[in-house]
Simulated scan of single mutants.
Amino acid sequence: MENVGGDGGLQRLQEAFVEHRGDEYAEYSQWLGVTEFDLHAFDLDEMNQRLKKIPPVYRKVYEANQQPSEAMIRYIQRI
Score class of each variant (00 low, 15 high):
Ile73Met: 15
Asn65Ser: 13
Phe37Gln: 00
Ala16Arg: 08
Leu39Ser: 13
Arg59Pro: 02
Glu15Phe: 07
Glu24Pro: 03
Leu10Lys: 12
Val61His: 03
Gly6Phe: 05
Ala41Thr: 08
Asp7Glu: 13
Asp43Phe: 03
Glu27Ile: 04
Tyr28Glu: 08
Arg12Ile: 03
Gly6Leu: 05
Ser29Gly: 10
Asp43Thr: 01
Lys60Asp: 15
Pro68Asn: 09
Glu15Met: 10
Asp43Leu: 01
Gln30Ser: 12
Leu32Ala: 04
Glu15Ile: 03
Gly5Trp: 09
Asn48Trp: 09
Asn65Leu: 09
Gln14Trp: 10
Asp43Arg: 01
Asp23Asn: 05
Ser69His: 06
Pro56Glu: 06
Tyr28Ile: 03
Pro55His: 02
Phe42Lys: 10
Leu39Glu: 11
Gly9Ile: 00
Leu32Arg: 05
Lys52Pro: 03
Val61Asp: 05
Lys60Val: 01
Phe17Val: 07
Gln30Thr: 08
Gln14Met: 11
Ala64His: 15
Gln66Arg: 11
Arg59Cys: 07
Asn65Gln: 12
Gly6Pro: 09
Gly33Tyr: 02
Tyr58His: 07
Gln30Leu: 09
Met72Asp: 15
Gln30Asn: 03
Ala26Trp: 00
Thr35Met: 00
Gln11Ser: 01
Arg50Leu: 11
Met47Ala: 15
Gln30Cys: 01
Ile54Tyr: 14
Gln66Ile: 06
Lys52Ala: 11
Lys60Thr: 01
Glu27Asn: 08
Leu39Ala: 12
Gln66Val: 09
Asn65His: 14
Gly6Ser: 10
Arg59Val: 09
Glu19Trp: 05
Ala41Gly: 07
Ile73Lys: 13
Arg50Phe: 12
Gln66Gly: 08
Met72Trp: 15
Glu15Cys: 04
Gln67Asp: 15
Phe37Asp: 00
Gly6Val: 02
His40Ile: 00
Val57Gly: 01
Val34Ser: 06
Tyr75His: 06
Gly6Lys: 04
Pro56Gly: 01
Pro56Tyr: 02
Tyr58Gly: 09
Val18Asp: 14
Gln49Ala: 13
Leu32Ser: 02
Gln14Thr: 09
Pro56Leu: 05
Asp23Pro: 01
Arg12Pro: 01
Lys53Gly: 04
Glu19Asn: 13
Ala16Gln: 12
Gly8Gln: 11
Trp31Pro: 00
Arg21Leu: 07
Glu36Arg: 11
His40Phe: 07
Phe37Ser: 00
Ile54Phe: 13
Glu19Gln: 14
Val61Glu: 05
Gln49Asp: 15
Gln67Ser: 14
Glu19Pro: 04
Pro68Gln: 08
